[in-house]
Design a binder for these strands. Sequence first.
RNA 1: GGAGGGAUGGCCGAGCGGCCGAAGGCGGCGGUCUUGAAAACCGCAGUCCGGAGACGGACCGGGGGUUCGAAUCCCCCUCCCUCCGCCA
Length: 444
Amino acid sequence: MGRSTLRPVLDVRRLRRDPDGVITALARRGIAAPEVTALVDLDVAVRAAAQERDEGRAEVKRMSKEVGAARKAGDVAAAERLQAESRGRGEVASQADARVAVLEEELRQLLLVTPNTPDPAAPEGAGPQDNRVVRSWTPTGVPFNEAAYADCQRVPHWEVAAQHGLLDLERGAKLSGSMFPLWRGPGARLLRGLTSWALDRHTTDGGPGPEWEEIRPPPLVKTATMVATGHLPKFEDDMYHLERDDLWAIPTAEVPLTSLARDELLDPDALPLKMCAYTPCFRREAGSAGRDTRGLLRSHEFDKVELMAVCAAEQAQGLQAEIMVRAEGLLRDLGLAYRVLDLCAGDLGFSSMRTFDIEVWSPGVGDWLEVSSVSWYGDFQARRAGIRHRLEGGGTAVAHTVNGSALAWPRVVAAMLEAHRQEDGSVRVPPPLRPWVGGLNRLG
RNA sequence: GGAGGGAUGGCCGAGCGGCCGAAGGCGGCGGUCUUGAAAACCGCAGUCCGGAGACGGACCGGGGGUUCGAAUCCCCCUCCCUCCGCCA
């Protein structure tokens, strides 16, 4: 009988082969060595018990065949003697099996909450302050200078939005509570236009590489789907859960897109699987109440267009680079200054090996706002999700996954409302976006 | 919500206590034939775990049970399909 379909995460064999390497790698993100050695010890115990179980079962199988033969030969006495002996062996085997089950479950639970090892190329560091800025871009081509923004641009977007009737946060709160923005009129139109624009860009126009397939996944998913990407069990408090039907509201399209290939064995020529999806994203934001929550800075529900790829190991970093180019291309067309951060080991998300964040400058807020996070997960998620592919020379391998936002709209809109605000208070719509908002060239 | 029927390898589909890791087909790979391709014919080939290997074990939706022995029998769960009801 098989066991749970929820597999571990970190490759146990890697742990076995190179425990010191894993200890060193996880230390970079603050995991203490004893937590890793506990995993190694558990693995040794699992294998010892499994060997005992397997030997017992082999005996039972062999004897059972003899029972069949004895019966056929009409030797009832021999058959009964063998049956009795086999029964004893079977009991020993099932006791060993019970120990295996307990130990395996213990190991699995620990692995499920053990994060991925950072890529050696990820910068050293303990937290956000240590992230490295790898490049930045401004619409003028002049190096970024906070002082270069005019007074008319230094108005926070919630004021700009209120001025032009783009957002109705009070009524959003009336309907659903705070941090549930309600968009109206041209604001709603702008949001819809951005989504169509990005989807069309990624799924039809060239850009680097062949196009991405447009997907519209369900925004509510089962527990197994949330576990596959690493969002459960560790981050349960950040998720909306529908008790009655045991469904979870997705925090990002990454969740359903990754599970598209869950438990599948893919042909090599099907790779890379390149998917693009718009979805609403739901986040409880437990513990972040009052912090950076004004206007569109942080909300419980927002729209995002996501790019997600399932691929072979050697394709992963190229795809990560492609997603970066695509996400940055949108920001350039929107004329927004941005910078790219190479996240340090200590600030990396749970499942990630290497992540680049893209942040736009918000002159009204006076800060950089994260609008995209582009991550390479190695085989961490694919191992959980059971996504494998065949190899050209025969055999199989666990796939790699890569994804990134392109883009998360509320903060992009925030930056647009501020950076594109004119002397007269109106907001200029960037030309590339105009065909998607009915030719509208200004708000207000 | 009510009533039935299903879930088997990469895919489709047989099997319904031991000779079944599992017929057959499709798809894949390697040949033969061909100027080349197609067709036809012949052959090879499941996945996972442990092991240097020999080899051993697991896997027929998931979990549990019966049995010397389970894809096959029993129980529970999940999912899918059909019909009825309701409905954007």
